[in-house]
C-alpha cells in the first residue's frame, strides 16, 4: 500500500465568485480506501468529479500514476448518470464496448432479477445503483469513485453493494474513494477519513488512529484558546469541543474530561457545529 496512485496538488475551482475548491491537495495510495465527509457545499462531490474527469479544475493538477489508464477509473455519480433510454442490455453492451470488457459478470444483475429489455429509466434507484456498480465492477477499475449513493438503497442492497466493493478491493487492490455523510453505513470500508470544509481538507486521519487523536470535551464554560479545537458546537446549556490533534500533555495542562467519540458523532457534530480555523490551533 505504499505505491502512490493519485497525486492531487493545489486544486482550485470557482463557479462564479464562489470558491468550491481552494488549494485542495491529496495523495492516495494503491488499494487505499478513503471516505470524504463534510457539510453540503463543502466541495466533496466537486472534488470527486475532478478525479473522474467530469469537471476540470481552474488551477492545480491531478496526476495518476503512469499505469492507470482512463478506462481503469470507475465513477458512480450522485446522479447515477447513464443513458436512460437504453435498455439494460444496451447499456451493458455500450459500456463493455467502450471499456473493452470481454466477460461481463451478470451475477449482480441476476440477483436483482433485472429484465435485460427493461429501460434503465424505469429501474428503481436501488436497482439503478447496483446496475451501475455492476458496470463499473466489470471494468476492474484501479480507482473507484463513489459519490453519496449509499443512502438511496435499502439495507439489503446496501450490504450487497458494500460486499461487492470489498471484494473488488481484495481482488484488484482497487483504491476506493467514497463521499458519504453517514459513517455507520460504510464503517467496514474506509481506512482513511477526510473531512472537507470550504474546499479544503481540514481533517485527514487514518480511521484507526482518529479515535486517539480526536477527543470531545463537554463544558459549560469557554475553553482556553490554547487547546487545539477543530470545531465546536453550542447546545442549550453547554458546549461541545472537539479537540484535534489530542495528546496526553494537553490532559495535564488543561484538565478537562476528554472523551473518545465515534466517527459518526464527529461528522454529525462537525456538520452541525462551527469549524474553528486551524490558525487557532
Amino acid at each position: 500500500m505504499t505505491e502512490k496512485i493519485v497525486k492531487v496538488e493545489n486544486l482550485k475551482l470557482n463557479i462564479g465568485r464562489k470558491k468550491i475548491l481552494d488549494n485542495t491537495s491529496l495523495e492516495l495510495q494503491k488499494g487505499e480506501s478513503v471516505v470524504i465527509a463534510g457539510r453540503n457545499g463543502s466541495g466533496k462531490t466537486t472534488f470527486l468529479k475532478c478525479l473522474a474527469n467530469v469537471i476540470f479544475p481552474d488551477e492545480g493538477s491531478i496526476k495518476f500514476s503512469g499505469e492507470v489508464p482512463l478506462e481503469k477509473i470507475g465513477y458512480i455519480s450522485d446522479q447515477l448518470s447513464l443513458f436512460e433510454n437504453y435498455t439494460v442490455k444496451q447499456g451493458i453492451n455500450f459500456h463493455a464496448s467502450v471499456f473493452h470488457i470481454e466477460d461481463f459478470d451478470y451475477s449482480l444483475i441476476k440477483e436483482l432479477n433485472l429484465d435485460l429489455n427493461q429501460k434503465i429509466k424505469n429501474l428503481s434507484a436501488g436497482e439503478r445503483t447496483l446496475f451501475h456498480l455492476s458496470l463499473i465492477l466489470a471494468q476492474k477499475p484501479e480507482i473507484l469513485l463513489i459519490d453519496e449513493i449509499i443512502h438511496v438503497i435499502d439495507p439489503y442492497l446496501r450490504e450487497k453493494f458494500l460486499e461487492a466493493v470489498i471484494d473488488l478491493m481484495d481482488r484488484c487492490q482497487t483504491t476506493v474513494v467514497m463521499v458519504n455523510h453517514t459513517f455507520s453505513e460504510i464503517e467496514k470500508i474506509p481506512e482513511r477519513v477526510l473531512v472537507m470544509e470550504k474546499g479544503q481538507f481540514i481533517l485527514d486521519e487514518k480511521s484507526e488512529t482518529l479515535g486517539e487523536k480526536l477527543k470531545k470535551v463537554v463544558s459549560e464554560t469557554e475553553m482556553s484558546e490554547e487547546v487545539p479545537c477543530i470545531f465546536k458546537r453550542e447546545l442549550s446549556y453547554f458546549r461541545e469541543y472537539f479537540v484535534y490533534p489530542f495528546n496526553e500533555q494537553l490532559r495535564k495542562k488543561f484538565p478537562h474530561d476528554y472523551k473518545n467519540t465515534g466517527l459518526n458523532e464527529i461528522i454529525k457534530a462537525f456538520i452541525g457545529g462551527q469549524y474553528v480555523k486551524k490558525g487557532n490551533q
Binding site: N53, I73, Y75, S81
Partner: peptide, 17 residues
C-alpha cells in the same frame, strides 16, 4: 441533446475519451 435529455451527461464525460 440526447445526453441532456436522458441525464447522461456525466456518464458521457466520464468515458475514457
Amino acid at each position: 441533446s440526447l445526453e441532456h435529455g436522458q441525464r447522461g451527461m456525466e456518464y458521457l464525460l466520464s468515458l475514457p475519451y
